[in-house]
Computed example of a mutant assay.
Amino acid sequence: MKTRSTVMALMLGCPLAAAAQSSVTLYGVADVNVEYVNRVGAVPVATNGFNPGPGDKVFRMASGGLSGSRWGLRGAEDLGAGWQASFVLESGFSLDSGTMQQSGRLFGRQAFVALQRAGIGQLSLGRQYTSIFEALANFSPTAYATQYEPVVLQAGANFREDNTVKYTGQFGPLTARAHWSFGAGLALPQTVGIATPIGGNGEVPGQFRRDTAYGASLAYGTGPFGATIGYDQWNPTIGTSNGTVRKAVVAASYAFGPAKIMGGYRWGQNKNAADVVIQRDDYYWIGANYQVTPAVGLTLEYNYDNVRSLFGNTQVANPWQLAFVANYAFSRRTDVYLSTAYARNAGLMLESLATVYANSLSLGNSYAAANGQRSMVGVALGMRHKF
């Protein structure tokens, strides 16, 4: 829904002159489903003695299956001579309960202001997605579906960061991105095997590197072929110092007729505050989209993580997952879907100590495997409306 600046100024109580020659768009997604998951345990944190407990099946309503539920405001103003100012304010919420997500932030998904010009690029400041996350968006078969996509394992728990300066440039078929965060603003609680919480608010006086983050990516797309490369680093608080979380990726896609195949590889290495490697893995994914009819779409995705070392353990059983999505579109805005996944040697979304259970903590629904369990199945039937 697009509203002229005069109407928005009246609604927001702003002077009309301040909004001259501007436009503001209200947009959003409402996505909710009913889900079944088996062998679910509790996220192992201090309050439960780091014990996931016995497994059991669960039937629940969940917000966000194919897309995270959200609403947002996007505005732009033509400044002349090819320059444009813009902003994005995007709030995530749980449709099943009406509560805010992203740790209760008002605009937890995105909140930034930008200045751009064609041929030069865009400079944006605020809470934003990382370069590597945006670079991989077109190479994720399920398009970063909220349920079952191993997004934390792939792009990192820090895929959104506070206090970020970001550059985006579009040069024909090539898109370049680079960002720097003065303080990522991500805090993960202490969990089994980890002696202290990880991360924090950052921007600590006298400790410039603490909680900083940065990355860059290049994406190429022309005709049926696409490819991307990227690097991401987060320096989270650990105790009174910081560690390093590093990722590098390469991915490609090819479309033919009603089908598109895509896949990629992500290298990962995490170190503690003493510069000792605490995690090293190689993550792979491959999948395909097939548009059976204009209304019916199918998606299949396989994910595999080769865990070379995890807190000194070099004999970790490698987790893998197979996911399938079928959706039917009633219109451009409304569709229904069936989403299902099977994970082995981890919970759904490949949730485990390797992800610090960040998916479950963020969504508010546990996908942690219970004691003694090595597999998990999830099935969700839902509806999504875009506005």
Rank of each mutant, 00 (worst) to 15 (best):
A317C: 07
W320M: 08
Q373F: 07
M349R: 12
Q315M: 13
G372D: 05
Q373Y: 06
V356H: 15
E351N: 09
A323M: 08
L350M: 12
Q373V: 14
P319G: 10
T314M: 15
D305G: 01
L310T: 03
A346Q: 02
L310I: 04
M349I: 03
Q373G: 11
S362W: 10
L348A: 04
A317N: 14
A343K: 02
T314F: 12
S352P: 04
T340E: 00
S339L: 14
Q321T: 01
Q373W: 09
N359D: 12
A343D: 02
A354N: 10
M349H: 10
N359I: 03
L338Q: 03
L350P: 10
S309N: 13
F330W: 10
S366Y: 11
Q373A: 10
F330S: 03
M349F: 14
S360D: 08
V316I: 09
S309A: 13
L322P: 05
R333K: 03
L350R: 11
A343P: 00
S339R: 09
N371D: 05
A354P: 09
N371W: 01
F311C: 14
T355Q: 04
L310H: 11
D335F: 15
T355M: 07
F330C: 04
G364R: 12
L361D: 05
A370S: 06
R308T: 14
A341K: 02
L363R: 12
A341D: 00
D305A: 05
A317R: 13
S362C: 15
S339H: 13
D305M: 08
R308S: 06
A343G: 05
N371F: 08
L310K: 13
F324I: 00
S339Q: 11
G312V: 04
